[in-house]
């Protein structure tokens, strides 16, 4: 990965209730935009429906110290899960019957990006574990070096100096100045 790369702007959702006729400069270039997908819509609607049903069952199962009936602690979660269930059914119907939603405001994911994301997530989880075992300083320096390597940094300054300095800086900031026990 080139070191001259720059962070690309986060694709921003132009407000749905925005101004008619106003150009939308944050839209992604057409060749990079994510494609609409009916399968994705159906899967998300089904997951939402499943979560609503689970929420409804859990809401009814809430144990109360005193049963008062009516507007009790079960009332609001039950109301919410019923509303969510109705909306999920509507979403599922729309997903099956109507053309899938436009996703042109999102950039398409690429294979390299997916690998980068999964590796970063694994490194982050390992960091949380190592933090408990080896302490903040060692874990953080290793974590930063590993991440920088995954993201394409290769020079010794990037992989050694930057992690060490950043770890030291955050330790002084959090531990020494802000009294957060790390």
């Amino acid at each position: 990965m080139s070191s001259r790369r720059r962070a690309k702007a986060t694709p921003t959702v132009i407000p749905a209730a925005g101004v008619a006729g106003t150009p939308s400069p944050a839209d992604v270039a057409p060749e990079l935009a994510a494609q609409p997908s009916r399968r994705l819509e159906i899967v998300t609607a089904a997951i939402a429906l499943g979560a609503s049903v689970a929420g409804f069952a859990l809401a009814l199962a809430i144990e109360l110290r005193t049963e008062t009936g009516g507007v009790d602690p079960r009332f609001w979660p039950t109301l919410l899960s019923l509303l969510a269930g109705a909306l999920s059914v509507a979403l599922l119907l729309i997903a099956v019957l109507r053309p899938p939603f436009d996703r042109s405001d999102l950039e398409a994911a690429n294979r390299q990006g997916a690998i980068r994301l999964v590796v970063a997530l694994v490194v982050a989880i390992l960091y949380v574990v190592l933090w408990q075992l080896a302490g903040y300083l060692v874990a953080t320096a290793l974590f930063l070096a590993a991440l920088l390597w995954v993201f394409g940094g290769r020079s010794w300054k990037t992989l050694i100096i930057f992690p060490v300095l950043t770890t030291a800086f955050t330790y002084v900031l959090f531990h020494t100045l802000l009294k957060v026990p790390l």
Partner: peptide, 25 residues
Amino acid sequence: LDVPVHYLWATILMFCIVGTYATTN
């Protein structure tokens, strides 16, 4: 704008984790 993006990503991820930890220890 010329700062390489890998510095930015690594720093953000670290600050997200450490910053969150700092809120509750």
